[in-house]
Simulated scan of single mutants.
Amino acid sequence: MKFTLLSALALPFFASAAIHTVAVGSNGLSFSPQTITAAKGDQIAFVFDGAGHTVAQGNFKSGCQPYKKGAFFSGNGPQGKTWTMTVTSTAPQSFYCSTPGHCENGMYGVINPAGANTLAAYGKLASKASGSKAPSKVKGGSFN
């Protein structure tokens, strides 16, 4: 394999990216862990241990509802598959399962919690939600 100056400069960038693994549905209606601290460029691998779940980017203003601008969404994840997304911002982002009744009963999490955008704050919104809504399109990651 031939290394160029460009590949040598890129190597530290790729070597420093971390992969964070999140179990989806392994203990019922749960993401484990629920809180992830990730840098820009890191990947989050959502491993679907249980069937009938999704990963959708949430909205810190209303629980169990999609974040409209640039929202990520896995669609219904097949059991045993992994949906991987790349973190594009260090800003706090919530995520939830959009299957009816799942988010409202605790299936949510937060990437890079900060300030008022914490797991506890999102949990209060989720517990008051009158239902879950899924984003309209699958985007922001891929299954492997």
Rank of each mutant, 00 (worst) to 15 (best):
F14H: 11
G140M: 14
Y122V: 02
S89T: 09
F72S: 05
H20D: 01
D42E: 02
Q43K: 15
F46H: 11
A10T: 04
N76Q: 14
I19T: 10
M85D: 07
S16L: 13
H20I: 09
P92F: 02
T99N: 08
P33F: 03
S62N: 12
V55M: 13
G140D: 05
H102P: 01
G140W: 04
S142L: 09
E104V: 07
A39Q: 15
A71F: 09
G131N: 10
S30Y: 03
H20L: 11
S32V: 03
A56E: 07
G50L: 03
S98W: 01
S32T: 12
G115D: 05
A126N: 03
F14P: 03
F3S: 11
I19W: 07
P92R: 02
P100C: 02
G140Q: 07
G25P: 12
V24Y: 14
P78E: 15
S94E: 04
N27P: 06
S30M: 10
T82I: 12
T99C: 14
V24E: 15
T82P: 08
P92A: 08
S74I: 09
Y122F: 04
S32C: 01
E104Y: 03
T86M: 15
K40H: 02
S7C: 03
G58Q: 04
T88N: 05
S127N: 01
T37N: 09
S74V: 12
T88V: 11
A17D: 03
P92S: 10
P135D: 04
Y122H: 01
S132R: 05
G101W: 08
Q43P: 05
F3N: 08
F143C: 07
K61D: 00
A17T: 15
T90K: 10
T88W: 06
P33L: 06
H53W: 13
F60R: 00
A18F: 08
F31Q: 08
G140T: 13
V24W: 13
S89W: 04
K2P: 07
L5M: 12
Y67Q: 07
T37S: 10
A121E: 04
A116V: 02
G141I: 09
N117M: 14
S62D: 13
Q93L: 14
T84G: 06
A116T: 09
C103P: 05
C64F: 04
K40R: 14
T90W: 06
V55I: 06
G63N: 05
V55P: 02
P135Q: 07
A39C: 00
T54I: 06
A114L: 03
P78F: 12
A71W: 04
A91M: 00
Q43A: 08
A23Y: 09
D49H: 11
F73E: 09
G109E: 02
G109C: 08
A114N: 06
V110A: 03
H53K: 05
V24M: 15
A134I: 07
A15L: 01
